[in-house]
Design a protein around this nucleic acid. Structure first.
Lengths: 216, 216
DNA sequence: GTCTATAGTCGGATAGAC
DNA sequence: GTCTATCCGACTATAGAC
């Protein structure tokens, strides 16, 4: 892969991917036309065929791009080693959920990426496989390990796996059903204040879940 | 509205709606063609224009149908009055979440309806407004009331609203991200056994959340 | 109410000039 | 690598026979 990030082909390639992620995320793959994408990227229609072979190729390129971006942003979290003490594990889980929540709910880029990923995750496909292998699977496994230490349960047991999905799911909900949440909360937007409120609830939830599942 | 549920127009009308819900839910509104729907309903293409004016009209009719069906199915739950004791409220919350989970995860019809609703909820639109007003808003409010009794918190406070969304969100996750869950759990499907396992986790989660949020 | 034929639109892909 | 012109296919919607 030759590098020429500034000018020429690579620039329009990126512009196309970023425009496509935004449009696919907000309207869905089928609802977006290649012309729309080219316009938004200020590129030519032909360039999509040139760079990606066609619309499906562009979709895959978007998935790779998003997966890499998120992996990069989330990388620091994956490095640290597993603690031995339940309290330490609980604290790390809380912190992880907070990071996830802040990333998902308030970061602007993340909103775009999340919308794109969500659309893909809803139904099976090769994009989902790719994302699962590079992102979700690993992250979930690591959180299960933490949950195992925190509760004394077997990390790879169905119970732990499901509980961890519950923790992630509640956070995701506020992104998926954002319109509904805003309406019910009487919020115009989820800004700093609102995010802090939500994070507090999530943290309490994490502690509650761990306590409820704890062995003995 | 004239009734002739057995034969003629009303029958094909229903067939069209039911086929459309299934297809819209699994593939998305834009990805489905009116021909596909007509074929699946064993009806003629022209009948869509006749009964609903066009594809958008059919979409709205689907939303109304789903909202009414779910409202009917969930009606028994909404009748009972508010308990005074925290323990009773907790038990009712647990039961409500279990009902919701069984409905959402295992019931076949619900799976279809849920998939359709999810697609609509992701992005704002008049369908979402309708569904919020007839379904989600009321149900959420009632659950908040129960949560308030169970914890001693103010039912309409942001904290309670968010906590209740968390409870619902975790359940919804297993529907939204079903492909991911199946992969990670190493399940082929979410049958009776699997649903029971999940319900147990949800029940534990409810108790944990209430305990963690409880005042004093 | 049902069905067919057709008009009109739009989208993806391609070929080829630059 | 970029851009234009164009083809082909698929779709929705409409009009009208039955």
């Amino acid at each position: 892969m030759e590098k020429q990030t500034r000018t020429g082909g690579e620039a329009t390639r990126l512009a196309l991917i970023e425009a496509a992620i935004r449009l696919f995320g907000s309207q869905g793959y089928d609802a977006v036309s290649t012309r729309q994408i080219a316009d938004a990227a200020e590129a030519n229609i032909g360039s999509i065929a040139y760079h990606f072979g066609g619309k499906p190729g562009l979709r895959l390129a978007c998935a790779e791009y998003v997966a890499n971006r998120i992996a990069t942003l989330a990388a620091p979290a994956a490095v640290s080693s597993l603690p031995a003490e339940p309290d330490a594990a609980t604290a790390m889980l809380e912190a992880a959920i907070e990071r996830f929540a802040r990333f998902l709910v308030s970061s602007r880029d993340a909103g775009t990426y999340a919308a794109f990923l969500l659309r893909e995750i809803i139904q099976p496909g090769e994009v989902v496989d790719y994302i699962y292998d590079t992102l979700i699977g690993r992250a979930h496994k690591r959180l299960c390990a933490l949950f195992g230490v925190a509760t004394g349960l077997v990390p790879e047991s169905p119970q732990v796996k499901a509980a961890v999905f519950s923790l992630l799911g509640q956070v995701l909900y506020f992104r998926v059903a954002r319109p509904v949440v805003l309406k019910r909360m009487d919020w115009d937007d989820i800004g700093e204040t609102e995010t802090d409120q939500l994070v507090n609830v999530f943290r309490t939830n994490v502690r509650g879940l761990i306590a409820a599942h704890r062995k003995g």
